[in-house]
Amino acid sequence: MMTQDVWEVIWLSLQVTTVSVLIGMLLGIPTGTFLGLYTFRGKRLVVALIYTCMGLPPVLVGVVVYMLLSRYGPLGALGLLFTPEAMIIAQIVLVTPILAGLTMSAVQAKERAYWETAKSLGASPVQMMLTIVKEARGGIWSGVAAAYGRAISEVGAVMLVGGNIEHHTRVMTTAIILETRTGNFTAGLQLGLVLLAISFLFNSFLMAGVLNQMRNGRR
């Protein structure tokens, strides 16, 4: 691979993953907070569903999104199959349950006393969610890190719905598959290293943030 191509692939990976995780955060964090704070009828079912979806096989997600977006599928008119947008849609489906589930755990891990304190101080439902999210931020950030790691290293779904098209939908993971299949193990391994380095950097930033939090907390 040309150096320029490598950068292009890395850049697209980062773009797709970042956009997916950001949208996933917008959907997953409020959902998780709500589930962590309130009880309602059918909550068990919803929670069971989210926990199941946290382990969704990416390939399954890929197939479903593929069928939806296919020219012959219900959303075929949008012409989204084999575009970065399709990859983002599949990634959102993958990361949102993770973000919701881990946010829920983080919120639940916070003692009930915080909820009661905020309620006693007169928090509206929305203010309550914001307060608890802020309080549980450490746990939520690790959820974001987990989601980011999963999204950027995912290959099954993005291969199916993105199509690994050169200069268009080729990301690091699909490029690795291609390099390996064509016998360029070295190139595949190098890209794999870049992938690991990015995951590592990203997690280090997050961990640094969390550690910082904890240190401040102990001062």
Binding site: F82, G163, N164, I165, E166, R170, A175, I177, L178
Partner: peptide, 18 residues
Amino acid sequence: ISSGQGMGETLQMADEKR
């Protein structure tokens, strides 16, 4: 369009993209 995939997938893509 360079699909970087196998024949089956490539045919599928050609079909989708006419």
